[in-house]
Simulated assay, not measured.
Amino acid sequence: MNDHTVKSYDEELAHLSGQIVRMGGLAEAQFAAAIQALARRDQELARRVVDGDCRIDELDHDVQTFAVRLLALRQPMAGDLRQIVGALNISGEIERIGDYAANIAKRSKVLDQLPVSVPVDGVVRLGELVRGLIKDIIDAYADRDVDKALRVWSRDEEVDAAYNTVFGDLIKGMTADSGAITASTHLLFIAKNIERIGDHATNIAEALHYQIIGVPPHGERPKGNTVGAGE
């Protein structure tokens, strides 16, 4: 390839990476707002999270279209191929984070309308833990930081343990007060959504490791057994 073609190709790869970083930042902001809406019983903020999910979907579509065009026109090899295919995979993971953030916001709106209020502190703390993972993995992607990606990957077990604690506390509360069952059930689904967002963050960490190094992280992902069902 001549110098002009190489420069153009490099710019295209940089644009693709920039779109992933932008999409990840938006998903992190959406998730943070959903947790904030839950903590503050903020109906308007929850509504904005639900309405804002379409922006992540649009970016996902743009990334998918651009990446497929690069594959067709540039016929990349080795590291470039891994970068483009990785962007396709990571974009899908981020899109799911956005979907779960919208689900959390929808349930928080329902919670605000119920006559019985239940403590949300444990769920909020779980959300803050997972938000940190999202921020770290998007930073790792932007900086091509394999070590940071591995640290995110290794914390999946920590998220599972925190989720199990929240689940157990909510079940105890439901057992002690049958009037809180409906509200607590919504919180159980919210907690499971958060735990799954953590899974998507660690999936991104695996994809990024493979994208940069060419092999997946060594060994089995540290993961605890989780309880309960999500959506």
Rank of each mutant, 00 (worst) to 15 (best):
M1N: 02
N2L: 04
V6H: 10
K7Q: 06
K7N: 04
D10H: 12
E11I: 00
A29W: 10
I35D: 01
Q36R: 11
R40W: 01
D42E: 11
L45K: 11
V50L: 05
D51Y: 06
I56A: 07
L59Q: 14
R69P: 00
L71K: 10
A72Y: 08
L73I: 00
R74T: 03
L81D: 09
L81F: 09
V85R: 01
L88N: 05
N89D: 08
S91E: 10
G92K: 09
I94R: 15
I94A: 15
I94N: 12
N103S: 13
Q113K: 13
D121K: 03
G122H: 05
V123T: 11
R125Q: 06
L133W: 04
L133F: 04
I134Y: 04
K135Y: 07
K135Q: 12
D136F: 06
R155K: 12
E157Y: 13
D160P: 14
D160S: 11
K172A: 12
T175F: 08
T175P: 03
A180K: 11
I181T: 12
T182N: 13
T182I: 12
S184T: 03
H186S: 04
L187Y: 05
F189Y: 15
N193Q: 01
N193G: 00
H200W: 00
A201Q: 00
A205G: 11
A205M: 10
I213F: 02
P216Q: 07
E220N: 09
G224P: 13
N225Q: 10
N225A: 07
G228A: 04
G230T: 14
